[in-house]
Design a protein around this nucleic acid. Structure first.
Lengths: 182, 182
DNA sequence: GGTGCCATGTAACGCGTTACATGATTAT
DNA sequence: ATAATCATGTAACGCGTTACATGGCACC
C-alpha cells in the first residue's frame, strides 16, 4: 500500500526518500510513523518495476540525494489502482475481535477485564483523534481521514459494549479449563 | 495473529494442521479463508518456540497426521497475549482511506465514481454479513464477531457519505494534473 | 562534547499470499 | 475417468517492524 502512497505523492512533485517519509507522515496527520528503511526498499522495488526513475543530485553542504520521478507507466499503474475499489474491505479477522473470541472459546484469563482495558485504549485513541481534528494545520483530505478513523473507534467502542452484555452467555469449549482440572 | 488463534484452538483439543484450518474457518464463520501452507509454517514456528509439541499418528486408510498439543509455555504465552489489550488499535492507514486520500491529493481519476464503486463493495459485504448472521449454526462467540464486522461496515458506509459531501472541496496539489498540462 | 538533522541503505524476522509438489482413498 | 477429500509440506515474493551501519553539518 505504501507503494501507491509514494507513487501518489511523487505525482505531485519529484522527491527523494527522506523527503517522502515526511510527506507521508504529513498527509496522514502524523498517525503513520513509517520506518525510513521501508521507504527506501519500497522505492527500490518501484524503480525495479520502472514505475519511477531516479537521478542523483549532488549537494554541497549535505549528502547526495536520489530524486525520484513517476514514469508514464507509474502514472498508469496509479490510475488503475485508484479506480479499483477495495474488495472484501471488511476484516472479521481483526486482532481485537480475535482476542475476545479466544477469551470466549478458551475461558482462559479474564474477559471482562480485557474488555475494560481495551476500552481504555480506544478512549485514548479517540482523545488523540479529537485533539488532532482540532489542530488547524490539517488539509481537508487529512481531516477526512481523521473523521473516518473516529467513526471506526466509535464503532469499536459500541462493539465492546455489546461484548460486555454478552460475556456471561459465552460458554467455553469442553476441555478448556485452566489446565489444572485433575 | 494466526499464531495465537492456533494456540487458542489447541487449548481446546489436540489437533493436526489440516484440522486446524477447518477449525479456524469455523470459529470465524467462514470469513477467513486461510491458506493451508500458512497453517503449517505457523505451526512449525510454534513448535520451534516450544509453545506446542507434536506427535505423528499413523493411520491405515489416510496419510499419517501430525497432532499438536499446547505446552505449558504455550498456555502461559496465550494467557499473556489475551490479557494484553491491543495498543493503537485504530489504523488511519487503511487502504480505502488511502485511495480516497490519493484521489483528493492527485486529482487523478474519478473520485466520485470510486466512492460509488466502493460503496457497492461495502453493501455487498453488509449483505454477506447479514446472511451469515441469519444462519443458525453459529456459536455465540462467532455471532459477536459478525456483529462487530457489521458495525465496521456501517461506519465505513457513513464515512463514504461524508466523503461524497466533501469531495467538491478537496483541492488537488499544484503540479498534479493529468500529466499533459504543457 | 552531545544531540539532532540530513541522507542513504542493509539484514533479520514475521506474517500473508500464491503457487507448486506428492500421493492415497472415496465418491460421482 | 475425474474430482473431491485427506494430509503434509516448500518456494518465492511482498510488506511491515526493528535494528544496525555510515557520515557530515549545525547548534547548544
Amino acid at each position: 500500500m505504501l507503494r501507491f502512497v509514494l507513487l501518489g505523492l511523487l505525482v505531485g512533485d519529484p522527491r527523494h526518500g527522506y523527503d517522502l517519509k515526511a510527506a507521508v507522515e504529513e498527509v496522514f496527520g502524523g498517525t503513520w510513523a513509517i520506518n525510513i528503511g521501508q521507504v527506501y526498499s519500497t522505492l527500490a522495488r518501484l524503480e525495479r518495476d520502472e514505475l519511477v526513475d531516479a537521478s542523483v543530485v549532488e549537494q554541497a553542504a549535505h549528502p547526495d540525494k536520489k530524486v525520484y520521478r513517476v514514469t508514464e507507466a507509474g502514472r498508469l499503474e496509479l490510475k488503475r489502482w485508484l479506480a479499483q475499489p477495495v474488495e472484501e474491505p471488511v476484516r472479521v479477522r481483526d486482532e481485537v475481535f480475535s482476542k475476545v473470541l479466544l477469551h470466549a472459546l478458551t475461558g482462559r484469563g479474564d474477559a471482562t477485564r480485557f474488555v475494560w482495558d481495551q476500552r481504555k485504549e480506544y478512549l485514548q485513541a479517540l482523545g488523540d483523534l479529537t485533539r488532532l481534528a482540532e489542530s488547524e494545520d490539517l488539509s481537508p483530505a487529512t481531516r477526512l481521514l481523521v473523521s473516518g478513523a473516529t467513526l471506526h473507534v466509535e464503532a469499536d467502542l459500541r462493539w465492546l459494549e455489546m461484548c460486555e452484555e454478552h460475556l456471561g452467555g459465552l460458554v467455553p469449549m469442553e476441555g478448556s479449563g485452566d489446565g489444572h482440572e485433575r
